[in-house]
Simulated assay, not measured.
Amino acid sequence: MNFHTRKWIKPEDLNPNGTLFGGRLLEWIDEEAALYAIIQLENPKTVTKYMSEINFASSARKGDIIEIGLEPIKYGTTSLTLKCEVRNKMTYDTIITIDTIIMVALGEDGKPKPHGKTQIEYQKDRMAK
């Protein structure tokens, strides 16, 4: 799994318990999944279709640094399925796992559009074309 983004937990990210607010973390995960899928599918009109069960295993506190990791699982005709893990860089604990996030590429009409991708592409490979 590649960990692309780090976040520093600040006071505005906390719930009344003084730990990371789950809604804030899900916002970050959704944004990171969208960015990853947009880049991979080369389509800025890529949206979240589905997130599977979310399993909070631990939390983070003010001042902690977390990492968001994504791994592509499957390329569909119009979709990209990802797996996610978020871990606390300070404690090395896994904070959350999401087994399935499905991102769908849309056309100008707002309907799913085939993307033609079958595997991860890296910038260096695209530049070589």
Rank of each mutant, 00 (worst) to 15 (best):
R61T: 12
M103W: 06
I66C: 04
K49H: 10
D109N: 15
G63Q: 08
G107Y: 09
P11A: 12
I29M: 05
Y92V: 09
W8L: 15
I54R: 02
T91A: 03
I9C: 02
L41C: 05
H115T: 07
E31F: 10
W28Y: 01
D125H: 15
V86M: 04
V47K: 01
V47F: 05
E12T: 10
A34P: 02
I73D: 08
Y50F: 13
T78Q: 07
P11S: 11
I95D: 05
K124M: 12
G107Q: 04
T78K: 15
M90K: 15
D13R: 04
K10V: 11
T97I: 09
I39H: 14
E31I: 09
M51H: 11
I39P: 03
S59H: 06
R87W: 01
D13N: 08
D125W: 14
L20T: 04
I65F: 15
T94K: 05
K62M: 15
T100L: 13
I102K: 11
G76W: 08
W8E: 14
K49T: 06
T19G: 02
G69V: 03
K74T: 04
K7E: 08
W28F: 07
T100I: 09
A57C: 13
L26M: 10
D93N: 11
P16Y: 10
I54G: 05
R6F: 10
N15I: 07
L82I: 06
I101S: 05
V104R: 06
K117L: 05
F56P: 02
D125S: 12
F21Q: 07
Y36K: 03
D13W: 01
T91K: 00
I95S: 03
T100F: 09
L25H: 09
V104C: 09
M90G: 12
N43W: 07
F21C: 00
G116W: 10
R126Q: 02
K83S: 12
I98K: 01
V47I: 11
L20A: 07
R87M: 06
I65D: 03
T118D: 15
I39V: 14
F56Q: 00
